[in-house]
Nucleic acid binder design. Structure first.
Lengths: 234, 234
DNA sequence: GCAAAAGTGTTGGTATTACACCCATGT
DNA sequence: ACATGGGTGTAATACCAACACTTTTGC
């Protein structure tokens, strides 16, 4: 079953830290390697950039192949280029994080082009196995970046279902920031921004009082953000 | 006089946005190209990563060759990999910004290894010429990053002389953030952090009231930063 | 004495923190 | 009825923004 990598001089790859949120936990998608090197280790999903495609396009293609999904929120965060990070040759990797909505009717469907896309499994970020290559370092770097971005970009809503409760939103913030937040203060602040739209709908199938559902209003967010920008320009 | 580049398949380069601060203005270092392509255009200084050196080491080497200086504050901020960004072949470039103290006794002395390091000139970031390749985009990206970092890293002190006045510090903040700040509020806030050490010394050779000089106290800063971290962990 | 920049406090508003109880629902 | 999470307000404090005049020095 072992594939064998040809020796090579130098290559550029993309590695992806794919974040998802499920059952109150922040998770990332990992594959179990079946090929040399690092056989049977867990690793970040990734692939090689082609000679005639841009880094950006490669990242989109690779993420599509890995997940079957399009138009995900993704962002480059660092390029890792130690000489010996890959035992088979020089591989410089450009790392991206991506945010996806986990839902179980609709599992990730890797597009099986080239037999390279393997089935991926979700792992809680608080309980990761050792990762192949320098992937642990890459993950840490990406997670850090995510934390920082949370303060000034509406990335949380890329990880939640379209309709969500404030408690879910809070749990997600807690998971990303790695700290507990006060419920009342959190709600007050979030609602004060004015970009959450309260729906006429409640949670279903819960064995306790159902919570109101909310939606992220992208247009209002854009308006608010824009006026902030122009205010700071004057 | 024209050098001629050989055609090549693919290469990795480092490009540097080297920031300096002088006469109240934020500047970057540009070189005027003498070779094809983009002959006579201004460009960010940079060079090719060697087969057997890490990205990080390459960045340090190249920056040293360009400036003659060691141990500069530098930071990778983005990798640019459009297919046609370089007319002579595929060149993926990893961009770094670096911060240096401009002082005129001690001009930048490029180390002339390989004839590639050319004399560089300082240009105000508010009045840049058109740049070769995608270097304008690279610059903008790096400048944005610098703005953001200013909020949570003590990078200003890498751009100022060891001893500086509060007015200089403020001018630098204004230049990076592209907005005016209130003098009293700025001073109050800076001094409240507690990492500026007031010296028993004043400015010399000025034709007006001499200002007190201050020094950045790295040890105090580290202490403060550390206790902040541990406070947010609890 | 005048030009040029240094230096200095107060106030009002806004944002952040800390904190505890009742409510609605399903079992 | 009870267990589970949903939902709510207030007071104290810290932080930020706006604002104008006096002082020192070199010429």
């Amino acid at each position: 079953m072992k594939e064998h990598l040809p020796k090579f001089e130098s290559a550029i790859s993309i590695d992806c830290v794919i974040f998802g949120f499920e059952a109150g936990e922040l998770k990332i998608s990992l594959i179990e390697r079946s090929a040399e090197p690092y056989t049977d280790w867990w690793a970040l999903p990734g692939n090689i950039v082609k000679q005639d495609e841009s880094i950006e396009a490669a990242a989109e293609r690779i993420l599509h192949e890995l997940t079957g999904l399009h138009d995900l929120h993704m962002e480059q965060f660092h390029t890792f280029g130690d000489v010996n990070r890959h035992p088979s040759g020089r591989v410089i990797t450009v790392a991206y994080y991506a945010l996806i909505r986990i839902n179980h009717q609709d599992e990730l469907r890797p597009v099986n082009q080239e037999q390279l896309a393997k089935k991926a499994f979700w792992h809680s970020v608080n309980d990761l196995p050792k990762l192949a290559f320098d992937h642990t370092e890459i993950f840490k770097y990406g997670f850090d970046q995510l934390k920082r971005k949370l303060n000034y970009q509406p990335i949380a809503f890329e990880l939640l279902p379209e309709k969500f409760t404030l408690t879910q939103l809070q749990q997600l913030y807690e998971a990303i920031l790695c700290k507990k937040l006060d419920k009342r203060n959190f709600r007050k602040k979030m609602l004060s921004y004015g970009f959450l739209k309260e729906l006429d709908e409640k949670q279903k199938n819960v064995s306790f009082r159902a919570a109101k559902l909310y939606k992220f209003d992208r247009r209002k967010y854009a308006k608010i953000f824009q006026s902030e920008l122009s205010a700071s320009e004057k």
